[in-house]
Design a protein around this nucleic acid. Structure first.
Length: 275
DNA sequence: AACAGGTTCAACCGCGACTTA
DNA sequence: ATAAGTCGCGGTTGAACCTGT
């Protein structure tokens, strides 16, 4: 179709956002809401393109954003979701309240990928690295045969093992519930190609239908996480213990840059104190 | 202290999908 | 039907920061 990028227009600012710009955008969106992004900069008095404003709001200014490190539960969930969804960051982010696709993508690329590699797991396939090498060899060997079924069985087995391993960290009851649900409601039907309406869909590959089926079970796990983090204990003491467990399970992704700019922003305009 | 190399993450870019005129 | 505008996504970039020497 050929159109100019909005950011190519002269005069428009690029790069890091100043606290003043943040304030203008924040005040505008909280007052008038999110409407047409292309008109936001003009109405908010910003020399930015609408796209840049949208991104800034979604990734940084939105009041419902969760700040700080990813919890162990979030980490497990991201890995599990990535295993099923691949690099569909927006869909993964949709299952983690308060997290953005950009944040999760960065976390994946900077931390989780390496962590999986260290564990001998290929972050792209979520299979053991050696198994991958063998699979490649086999594929070359048997390239004329139809390998679909054995492959799917291997993946199913792996999902069973991996998902169970991840979820057991949350707690036994929820893990059992989750595993039951994920295995019998969604993954097994997806992985076994029993997806009624889409059985002819890409020869058993990923489909939107199967993805939709995931929503319920993902919502379930998210709720479990919420329960664990915010409700799960009846006393303050218990919740402290759980919070400590969560904190101790996390690993260093907390960025001073983030906290610094957060403080800077909070200090630079008081409106954030009201959120 | 100074520098180099590595890491992190906010922001940009290009593209496809969707909507509107 | 289609051109133009808009939105949202995923990949990439580069400045800021960290760490080791």
């Amino acid at each position: 179709m050929g159109r100019n990028s909005c950011c190519l227009k002269p005069k428009l600012r690029k790069g890091l956002w100043s606290p003043e710009e943040d304030e203008k955008l924040f005040n505008y969106i909280t007052t008038f809401g999110v409407g047409c992004w292309s008109s936001v900069p003009k109405l908010a008095g910003l020399e930015r393109c609408g796209k840049s404003c949208r991104l800034r709001w979604i990734n940084y200014l939105r009041p419902d954003l969760k700040r700080g490190m990813f919890s162990q539960q979030e980490e497990d969930l991201i890995i599990s979701l990535h295993e099923v969804l691949g690099n569909r960051w927006a869909q993964i982010a949709a299952q983690l309240p308060g997290r953005t696709d950009n944040e999760i993508k960065n976390f994946w690329n900077s931390c989780l990928k390496k962590k999986l590699m260290k564990q001998g797991i290929d972050p792209a396939t979520h299979k053991p690295l050696e198994e991958n090498m063998e699979a490649i060899k086999d594929e070359k060997k048997n390239s004329t045969y139809n390998n679909e079924k054995p492959k799917m069985e291997a993946i199913h087995h792996h999902h069973h093992h991996h998902l169970h391993g991840n979820i057991s960290k949350i707690n036994e009851e929820s893990s059992q519930h989750f595993v039951n649900k994920i295995e019998f409601d969604s993954l097994s039907s997806y992985l076994n190609g029993e997806n009624n309406n889409n059985s002819n869909n890409n020869g058993g590959g990923f489909s939107w239908e199967s993805e939709n089926k995931l929503e319920n079970l993902l919502e379930f796990q998210t709720n479990q996480m919420k329960n664990l983090e915010f409700k799960g204990s009846s006393s303050v003491e218990e919740s402290k213990i759980i919070q400590n467990q969560i904190n101790s399970a996390t690993f260093g992704s907390y960025h001073p840059l983030m906290s610094m700019s957060e403080n800077e922003r909070a200090g630079s305009f008081g409106i954030f104190h009201h959120i």
